[in-house]
Structure formats: C-alpha cells, structure tokens
Simulated assay, not measured.
Amino acid sequence: MKNLLCLSVICLFVLLWSGCSAADESTEDKNDDIEETEESNTNNVETDNQENKTDDGNNEESESKPNELTNEKAEEILLNLKQTFMVETTNDNIVINYDTVAELQQHFETVMSESLAERYLDGYFQKENENLKLLATEEPAWFQPEEDYSLEEENPTTYHLIQKQQSELHGNKEYTFTIKAREDTTWYVSNISSKDINQEFTEKDAIELVSEHLEGELGDNMALRFDRMEEGNYIIHVFENTETHTATYGWYEVNPETEEVTSMF
C-alpha cells in the first residue's frame, strides 16, 4: 500500500514538472516571436526612411534640372526677345513706359543676359532731356522663324540656335543665338554672335565679271547671257541684239574659283 502511494506521488510530481517546462518553452517562443516582429518592423521603418530620402533626392535633382529645350520653345524665346526689345515709343521715338536706363535694362533682363541688355542699350537708346529715346537706326538682327536653322545642345543648360540670313542691310551672315537656363530653370538669351559667309558664285556673278572685263567695249545693243557650264566653268555668250539681227560678239569662260575671265575665240 505504501509503495502504491509513493508511486502515485512520484507520477504527480513528474506531471507537474513537465507542465511547467512546457509553459516556460511556450513563453520563450512567444518572446522570440515578439522580438522578431519588433526587429522586422524596425527594419521596415529604416527601409522606408531610406527610400523616402532617395525619393526626396531625386525630386530635388529633378526640380533643379531644366527641361530639354525644344525647337518650339527656342523659337518662342527668340521671338519674345524681339518683342521685349520693341518698346512702345512716341512719334519722336521717346520711350513711354520706362523713364530710366535702369528700368529699361531690368525689363530687358527678363529675357536676356545683362551683357546683351547693355549692348542693346548702348547701341540703340540714348538719354535726351530726361527721357529715353530710341535711336533712328537699323534694328538688330533677329531670328527669322520662316528660315531654316539648327538647334545644337552644348550641355543640358546651354543651347545654340544657328541660322544663316541674307539681307541688303546685314549682308550674308551666320547668326548664333545662345540660350541658357537660369538657376530657377527658366531660359534666357545669353548672347548673339555672327560671322560673314562667302556667297556662292552664281550665273549673275559670271555675267558681271565678263561685263567688267569688257568695260568700254559694249554698246547699247550688246547683251550678255549665261549659256552653259563646261568643266566647272561658266560660259557666257556676248552678242549684239538689234531689231533686224543678232550677231555674236564673243564667248567667254569664267572660272568661279579664281574669277578669271578668258575669251574662247
């Protein structure tokens, strides 16, 4: 009987000990799960913060970088340049809306550089009796939207619009309009430069050279006409043209490179 009682006590003790051990293990597992969850949440927060910083950096870079300058935008800028220069004046060329050079320069610098504004002010305006006056002279050379041009990128903030123009006033020139971006990414005209272009030799040039070559020999009834090209040279026919007949006076060859005139007879 005593042995049976002792055995029962021992079994009860074993069951209690096993239950306590299982409870401790369960508690430890729960604690481990909580720690892993907290660590995972911390890592997610750090990752989100890093992504937000990266996004902020990209946004700042995007905000500070100007958009690509398109042909349409470049044309708009250069046409606005001309419109800004053409200030309203009286019949006596007195500037109406700007009383001082400083005011007019500030107006110009909304679309152009300080140096270009000063160039326009020095060349086309003067102070007269406390007034600003637009000088009666030829206008600056402007961009011609109906003519061909090329737009070249030097870097993301600097472009060059290049256009060839020919006029009686300015001659045959190639203009370079330099357009730059300000720190606030707005575009403005930084500079305008030009260079002379050698005009292509034409039939008219060949006829004029022959006429100069025969100066003093041609009568009122004499005519000169381009006939054909031979080995790169212009052939000019000189003839007498009257009401009754046409008589050849001579044939002349003109070298377009040397501008030499040679009689073919």
Score class of each variant (00 low, 15 high):
Asn172Leu: 15
Glu25Ile: 04
Leu69Gln: 14
Asn49Asp: 07
Val261Thr: 08
Ser167Ala: 13
Tyr252Asp: 09
Phe125Asp: 03
Tyr175Val: 12
Leu121Cys: 09
Gly232Asn: 02
Lys173Glu: 14
Phe108Trp: 09
Gln165Ser: 12
Thr110Phe: 08
Ala74His: 10
Glu128Ile: 06
Asn233Phe: 10
Glu240Cys: 04
Trp187Pro: 12
Gln83Glu: 10
Lys53Leu: 05
Ala22Met: 15
Ala247Arg: 15
Glu51Asn: 11
Glu153Gly: 11
Glu60Lys: 06
Met86Ala: 06
Glu260Trp: 00
Asn155Pro: 13
Glu75Ala: 14
Thr244Trp: 00
Glu60Phe: 07
Cys20Met: 09
Asp29Tyr: 11
Thr176Tyr: 13
Thr42Tyr: 09
Gln50Asn: 15
Leu81Phe: 08
Gln163Tyr: 13
Asn31Cys: 02
Leu7Val: 02
Glu61Ile: 13
Lys73Met: 06
Glu114Phe: 07
Glu35Asp: 06
Pro156Glu: 03
Ser115Gln: 14
Cys6Phe: 12
Cys20Trp: 12
Val254Asn: 06
Glu39Arg: 14
Lys73Asp: 03
Gln199Gly: 03
Lys53Val: 09
Thr27Pro: 04
Glu35Thr: 04
Gly123Tyr: 01
Thr246Ile: 00
Glu212Trp: 00
Glu76Pro: 04
Gly216Tyr: 11
Ile207Ala: 05
Ser167Thr: 12
Phe177Thr: 11
Lys164Ile: 15
Glu154Ile: 14
Val45Tyr: 11
Leu218Phe: 04
Trp17Tyr: 09
Ala23Glu: 07
Glu46Leu: 07
Glu75Thr: 11
Lys164Phe: 05
Glu231Gln: 14
Glu203Trp: 02
Leu218Cys: 12
Thr54Cys: 03
Leu79Asn: 15
Asn43Ser: 11
Leu104Ile: 11
Thr246Lys: 05
Asp55Arg: 05
Glu208Ile: 02
Asn131Gln: 04
Glu168Asn: 10
His160Thr: 13
Asp220Met: 03
Thr47Trp: 04
